[in-house]
Design a protein around this nucleic acid. Structure first.
Lengths: 246, 246
DNA sequence: TTGCTCCTCACGTCACGTGAGGTGGC
DNA sequence: TTGCTCCTCACGTCACGTGAGGTGGC
């Protein structure tokens, strides 16, 4: 009149391996054996196993269960801590669901940061712009990112931006100079719309101590020589023009 | 102008080991190296890494991400499946929180099944009764368990039950016979209150194909010789008395 | 020369799952 | 003798964490 390992496992609604695992880690005492070496479990083992199973189902780790010991008194502190952890996990998962919902709604590619999703939906960004947006999203702070998203949505910025995007590497000098000249007022207006954009990296996320150099490297990586030349010319124009009248 | 492994990891908000792990499993292509063997990462690597990180943060497994390939198009089907899984997980965790709340409210020991918590709170059960209750909770179906919980709350059943519990192993014959005689009507009333109790194991949970033998074994394990003798006498009395008049 | 970063093994974690190979009971 | 259950290793899983031991760059 004793249960085998399989019977014990079935009664507890668990597996053979779990019972043996609990023996291995010392959570469940090994029972007496018959002459042939087979284990014989009694009610005490079943009760103990059910208690372990119940706690693991609640999310208690095996070391924690071991620390609670054999006495059946209920450890209010452990349970309260666990409850708080569960609450935090639930919140995290719910935030994940919200983000998934946003991705599905906007049908954005999964490498676009969610903050730029609305912009990405209306203006279809080229591969380079998407890469640039992804990098910037890591380097910009909240304010900078919002400003960037807002700019992406503007038609005028978008049109001339597209022109810049598609500039071939072998564009001749007049073309580059002309593009830089037409870009200058647009960029000035952007600066005007977003005061303090120069300090946009102040509230950058953790780990991007490199804000400026990172953005610089991304630009150097992504754009061709003609485009880089246009940016140089643009910088020159912005610096040498009279300052923006406030 | 290239990022080191550490810089790449920091920019993506992750760890050195994670970057190397993604190399190992082929999720992230290894970049070119300098003459001294150091890796040089570019924007493409950062974008890829950020995409991976975003998906893992949402709960997508690495093999799933690998299956999605390098193209940034968003896999609606995968995301919808994931969303459903998240919803299921959240529900499970919320049920766990409800149960933790019940345990804390009733201050029940963690080996008592939750269905018997109210009963356990008012009538403090002895160790044997608790073990018996735990075993029965695995062997009884919903109906049987409810009936059992209801009985535990009745004062009359409780009083004579406590007497049975505390019966010493060396109780003399008249004591046992007397206890059995006084138990008989109580048990008959219980049967009267819960018609069809004989089939209580019909809706027993998965894996307890042993309902009757299990309960029998638990009784044999938990009670002393005098108590078992009382049960035998009780059984005899119940069988030989005229049937309960309906 | 001293720190500092980079590199590649390679074992550890957590709670088991899954055979591999051998024996006892009917 | 044939299935069936039981047993003990022992490696695999998942997504990394954490040293161990050695080298390059300033």
């Amino acid at each position: 009149v004793a249960w085998s390992t399989r019977e014990l496992a079935e009664l507890a609604g668990t597996s053979l391996r779990v019972v043996r695992h609990y023996h291995e880690v010392g959570l469940l005492a090994e029972p007496q054996r018959r002459a042939n070496g087979w284990k014989q479990y009694g009610v005490a083992h079943l009760v103990r196993l059910l208690r372990i199973k119940r706690l693991t189902d609640l999310g208690v780790s095996l070391p924690q269960i071991a620390a609670m010991g054999d006495d059946a008194e209920h450890p209010a502190e452990t349970l309260r801590t666990l409850d708080a952890e569960l609450a935090a996990t639930i919140e995290r998962l719910q935030r994940a669901r919200v983000e998934i919902g946003a991705i599905l709604r906007h049908a954005t590619p999964t490498d676009m940061p969610i903050e730029l999703a609305p912009a990405a939906t209306t203006t279809r960004l080229s591969g380079n712009s998407r890469a640039m947006a992804t990098v910037l999203s890591r380097v910009l702070g909240t304010r900078g990112l919002q400003a960037y998203a807002a700019e992406l949505l503007r038609e005028d910025s978008d049109r001339i931006g597209a022109e810049f995007e598609s500039l071939p590497a072998d564009a001749d000098e007049p073309t580059r100079q002309d593009l830089a000249r037409r870009l200058a007022p647009v960029v000035r207006t952007v600066y005007g719309r977003h005061r303090g954009l120069q300090t946009f990296y102040a509230d950058a996320p953790q780990g991007s101590r490199f804000a400026l150099s990172t953005a610089g490297k991304a630009i150097a990586d992504l754009y061709n020589t003609a485009q880089l030349d246009v940016l140089r010319r643009l910088d020159h124009l912005l610096k040498n023009a009279r300052p923006d009248p406030r």
